[in-house]
Design a protein around this nucleic acid. Structure first.
Lengths: 150, 150
DNA sequence: AGCTTCGCGCAATTTTATTGCACATCGGTC
DNA sequence: GACCGATGTGCAATAAAATTGCGCGAAGCT
């Protein structure tokens, strides 16, 4: 993991659709050497996957919401059970168990408010061990970054 | 945007490193037709970008944290100012203005706790209009999905 | 120095992407 | 019902990229 590897990772985190030839030139390597590095970064697991990011608005998931959830029972077993239920929900994009005043934080990608309503009905009920929850609708997205600088 | 387009988007949201030939076969089109569809989806903006997702642990950003921030002054101008400051921070991966008991939610990707400490020093101070903030360290990531089903 | 390992570039080969083209389908029009 | 334009498709040719074998040189070790 030297300077060139980091350079490659930074490039690919921004735009992984560029050709290997193109990136090779940018980092100052021959295409074959560059390719072997990228393959190595893949196999090593540093590059987890390469994906297309859609525009939420154009893909019909215009509304984002964050929800903090407090559970009634806090044992590891109860936590896992709730997370397992939450993760299966299609509209739940992120689900975290966290420290602090709350137990779980979810991020949602929603088509409309009815979807939010329906989700709350399914997810935030007594049988699911939910004491209470706070919903925060995203008004503005100031930053949303999958990349991390290396 | 027909059934085949949706199929392609679903494929590419999972794995955008597959060859066009490969995907063409899966959706039942010739490579040329398939390619033209993908190009169209790109130009239309439905596909915003194609990126490499790194493994946070292997890339040295093992710690995630969520922070809710309450501002002192709530005008649009003040909100924008804080978000502009927050978004420039390298460790801030997501920054949202939200409704609810709090004004802003940030997601952080951190190397260690010192980075968190340093960020708090820079960001959550009186000059930046911050009344108070609550930090939630992510204990477990149950789900983290860039894809949305179509 | 001798040896091993590793990453590099070159060049040949295979695979893919890209483009021009003719054809089929669909809707709307006259 | 014939006509026409717009759209999407497959095929085939071409250009470009990915992939692989190979020999070389630098770095580390004995």
């Amino acid at each position: 993991m030297d300077r060139i590897d980091r350079k490659l990772l930074n490039l690919m985190q921004r735009d992984a659709s560029r050709t290997n030839v193109d990136m090779a030139e940018e980092v100052g390597l021959s295409p074959s050497s560059c390719l072997r590095r990228v393959q190595r970064l893949r196999k090593s697991g540093v590059i987890d996957r390469v994906v297309a990011i859609l525009d939420p608005a154009r893909a019909g998931r215009a509304i984002k919401a964050l929800v903090t959830v407090e559970l009634k029972l806090h044992g590891e077993h109860h936590m896992r059970r709730f997370l397992d239920i939450a993760r299966t929900e299609e509209v739940v994009s992120h689900a975290y168990a966290v420290t602090g005043e709350t137990d779980v934080v979810l991020m949602l990608g929603l088509r409309d408010m009815d979807e939010l309503d329906a989700l709350c009905d399914r997810l935030f009920r007594d049988e699911n061990n939910v004491a209470r929850y706070f919903t925060m609708i995203v008004i503005r997205t100031a930053k949303e970054e999958t990349a991390m600088r290396l």
